[in-house]
Amino acid sequence: MPTVDLSVTSLRELNQALHEQSDPGNDRHWIVKNPKGQHALAAGVDAELDIDIEGHVGYYCAGMNKQAKITVHGNAGVGVAENMMSGVVHVKGDASQSAGATGRGGLLIIDGNASARCGISMKGIDIVVKGDIGHMSAFMGQAGRLVVFGDAGEALGDSLYEARIYVRGAVTSLGADCVEKPMEDKHREELAALIDAAGATGEVDIGEFRRYGSARSLYNFKVDNVSAY
């Protein structure tokens, strides 16, 4: 089990080593010590690795991740798992702004809270936040699902395309073209599966969630929508 101590090894050496693991062999499980808020940790990994980062990370940890399961045993800075393609990124603490931004696949789990713009421009990623999320989350969300156990800040789902949002707590306000939609059985099933994937089955009552999505009224330019552009 390779252990990389970032007080000795450089960020560059770590990422280079991780990028060379396309044939993981025996070294599937990596441990990274002393991350001390460094940026771009484990960015661009494309291998079935299990990477445990023992501490807080800076910006863009696990950026563009493919396949790997990356666990941050601490808090994450801006843009954790940005543009993730596949795999799982699990933040045990809180996450800063733009968590999972533009993500195209995979699952991002945040045990704590996520700040503003969580899931901004999401394109297929699934995000499960066990705490609250900040303002402008899922802005222009195109595809994928965002599940929030706590509350959501202002302008949730502004200019939303086809991303689907489930929030258990209060929503301060909905953004332009984002509306509440009825929860049907298929939505409850979808939600249950996401909560299960996040390893949180039984932690929350699915009946308490509400569903939000696009009203699709801004999909084409119309004079009557001018105030929303």
Partner: peptide, 12 residues
């Protein structure tokens, strides 16, 4: 930092 990330992903 964004540029750093892009460099890291593409190994500089």
């Amino acid at each position: 930092v964004k540029i750093l990330e892009l460099r890291e992903i593409t190994d500089w």
